[in-house]
Amino acid sequence: MAVERTAPAASRPAAGAGAGAAWRFGTALREATPALLTYAAVRAIGLVVMGVWMAAVDESPHRFLAERWDSRWYARIAEEGYGYSSYSSGRDHPDLAFFPLLPALERAVTAVLPISTNNAGLVVGWTAGLAAAWGMYAVAALSHRRAVGVVLVALWAALPTAYVQSMAYTETLFTALAAWTLHAVLTDRWRLVAVLAFAAGLTRPAGVAVVAAVWVGGAAVLLRRRGGGDAPPRGRVWGAMALAPLGWLGYVAWVSVRRGSPTGYFDVQKEWGNGFDGGRAFVGFMADMVRVDPLHGLLLLTVAAALLVLLVACVRQRQPLPLLAYTAVIAVTALVSGGYFTSRPRLLMPAFPLLLPLAALLTRLPRAATAGLLTAAAVGSGAYGTWFVLGQMGPP
């Protein structure tokens, strides 16, 4: 006589849609736990290195992580709203250059927690860092072994510019929204795509890269449907493609209305010294750095060469078209504009698919060798970040 086998109570969802969703969330969280712990450990190593170094020179890590550069601008917007400008280096710097989602979240955090706006920025940034790590792991797990996702997260946390992931900046928030948007595109959850892409567009100018990924992914689904393949409802896909750019477009339009000019947002960028020039200014900057500061200049050249190699590797790895579109637009927007050249490596940080080929390669090594290399990278990342901010190389 056959015996019916049932799953243990702890491993099967309880009755009801809500219970089933909670069970699926719990299962996904358990699967991602190694990646999340790895991310936290790598970032902790970087912060310990920074803390020890700064203690030796009687400096405060908190001042650099939460109270300098863009962090101050976001905190001011959260506290007072838009309208502040400063004038320095012969330029006007209006706060309209900064997108609104991070200061809105900072304001929400201070409404429920008795902390300063600057510390609220750290809460948002650090929490978003974990969400970004989970999203990157989830994207990698769709087409690779889970170990590749864990190594991908570790590599991202150990980038030379990864100290920014521990600052009250938008990099972790944007990367989290982008990674989960890409995951939703690849898994045909188009309602979620629309919400996440809209939010990414309210986070930073690079939201256009998320829109590109949504449009490319949506076009592929519609073509698949025309060819008779299995695909989600056409209206749902078209709706996501239509809603995806509205966050970015909405903020740009709001700035244009506020400035009384259809090019208002782009005028603001020019006032900051930013503007698209095809990359000429960036090439000139790197040449000057090689001449004036050879060590830093050679590092920038190495990063640029590695970027090209990794882009080719992503294509050869046959990454899904939405990932390739997202990565390409991030690279273009980061490298073809003028001004604030020391920030270019930071602006490339959300392009995490670039690290997938390297992550896949590292997982083929013995586990001890991979762990040793990632630990060394984490220590090096902390040292580089501390050297950069203490050396006043420019805004990160």
Rank of each mutant, 00 (worst) to 15 (best):
A2W: 15
R5M: 14
T6F: 15
A7Y: 15
P8R: 15
S11W: 10
R12C: 13
P13K: 11
A15T: 09
G18Y: 02
E31N: 12
A32G: 08
A32N: 05
A35H: 07
T38E: 01
A40E: 06
A41P: 04
V48Y: 04
V49L: 02
V49P: 03
M50Y: 07
V52D: 10
A56Q: 12
E59K: 12
P61H: 09
R63W: 15
F64H: 10
L65E: 08
R68I: 10
W69H: 09
W69T: 11
D70I: 10
A78D: 03
E80Y: 09
Y84G: 14
S86A: 13
S88L: 10
G90S: 01
D92N: 14
D95A: 03
L96M: 04
L96P: 03
A97R: 06
F99S: 02
F99L: 05
P100W: 01
E106G: 06
V109D: 00
A111C: 08
L113Q: 13
P114I: 03
I115R: 14
S116Y: 11
S116E: 13
T117H: 10
N119E: 13
N119G: 12
N119H: 13
G121P: 05
L122A: 04
V124P: 05
L130P: 06
Y137A: 13
R145L: 13
A147I: 14
G149H: 09
V150S: 05
L152E: 01
V153D: 09
A154V: 03
P160K: 02
T172W: 00
L173N: 08
T181D: 01
A184C: 05
T187R: 01
D188V: 02
D188G: 02
W190I: 08
A200W: 03
A212E: 15
A212L: 13
V216S: 08
G217N: 10
A220R: 10
V221T: 12
V221F: 12
G229Q: 15
D230N: 12
G235Q: 05
V237I: 03
W238D: 06
M241D: 02
L246T: 15
Y251L: 06
A253T: 12
V257E: 14
V257I: 09
R258L: 05
R258I: 04
P262N: 04
P262Y: 00
Y265C: 02
D267F: 01
W272A: 05
F276L: 15
F282Y: 13
M286D: 13
D293Q: 10
L295C: 06
G297V: 09
L298N: 03
L301T: 00
A304H: 01
A304P: 04
L308V: 12
C314G: 07
C314H: 08
R318H: 12
A328M: 07
V332W: 03
A334I: 00
A334W: 04
Y340Q: 10
T342R: 15
S343E: 10
R344A: 12
R346Q: 06
L348T: 13
L348F: 07
P353W: 14
A360P: 01
A360T: 09
R364A: 07
L373Q: 00
A378D: 00
V379H: 02
V379D: 07
S381H: 11
Y384T: 11
Q392K: 11
G394F: 04
